[in-house]
């Protein structure tokens, strides 16, 4: 008997919802299921996140046309992968010569201050290495990509997440507060620490995003602080082995 057959058999024969005991529990549960309006603070928080989503270029259907779909994470990943990958490569090479120099990476846009990680991303764009639409990440890999991917693991053989500062430890039960703490830590002040992206799969990132090595509930992960929109930053945490979709997300106040 398959599990589904077993379920059906059980549902039909063993514990009918018509039995008095089942009805009694149902009544107790129903009595507990009073209407539960969403608390104002949660509503405001979701409003803020939604506003950020709507305002994020490419994050909504705004400006789209009938029949278009919202770009999903896979699309974003495909779009951003080359830049992130080569940015990782650039920083990894730097990391070989100057170990423990960076803790987190801000992927810069066309303007603003540039960290080492920024320079990597900017270089990529300047060299025109952005993959053309329709090509796969594998097809667009440059020699630099491959070289970086080979070198990065060697550089990060140690469990770099074990050596992360306490401020980079996130817990699901206090994700927003912990993330805010990370976001509040000045980027400039983190120079001279370790670099990310070498060990974990690279999550999708765009100019203005900030990537930070973290631990989420004890597991190595990458925190992506999206570019500030309307005073907030969307924060996504990606498991080390899965850059396709975040395992957790929240929003925090921007600087």
């Amino acid at each position: 008997m398959t599990p589904e057959e077993s379920d059906q058999h059980l549902a039909d024969d063993d514990f009918s919802s018509d039995e008095p005991e089942q009805q009694r529990v149902r009544r107790l549960l129903a009595a507990t299921g009073d209407p539960t309006p969403m608390p104002e603070e949660v509503a405001h928080r979701l409003d803020d996140v939604l506003a950020g989503l709507v305002a994020t270029p490419g994050g909504s259907a705004s400006g789209g046309h009938a029949g278009s779909s919202v770009p999903d994470l896979a699309e974003r990943r495909a779009r951003r992968w080359p830049r992130v990958l080569v940015a990782a490569a650039a920083v990894s090479v730097v990391g070989l010569g100057v170990s423990n120099l960076l803790e987190d990476t801000s992927i810069s846009g066309s303007g603003g201050e540039a960290s080492s990680g920024d320079a990597g991303g900017a270089d990529v764009e300047a060299q025109g290495l952005r993959r053309s639409p329709g090509t796969t990440p594998e097809a667009s890999r440059s020699p630099a990509d491959s070289q970086a991917e080979e070198k990065a693991p060697a550089r990060d053989r140690g469990d770099r997440a074990d050596t992360l500062p306490a401020r980079s430890v996130l817990r699901s039960e206090s994700l927003t507060a912990d993330t805010q703490r990370v976001a509040d830590f000045p980027v400039a002040a983190t120079a001279g620490r370790e670099k990310t992206l070498g060990r974990c799969a690279a999550p999708p990132a765009e100019p203005g995003d900030r990537l930070v090595d973290v631990r989420l509930d004890g597991e190595a992960a990458t925190l992506v602080l999206r570019a500030a929109e309307n005073g907030f930053r969307l924060a996504e945490v990606y498991a080390c082995d899965n850059a396709a979709s975040p395992v957790a997300s929240t929003s925090v106040l921007a600087d």
Partner: peptide, 8 residues
């Protein structure tokens, strides 16, 4: 059937 069994 799975929902029923889970509920039960």
């Amino acid at each position: 059937g799975t929902v029923k069994s889970r509920c039960s």
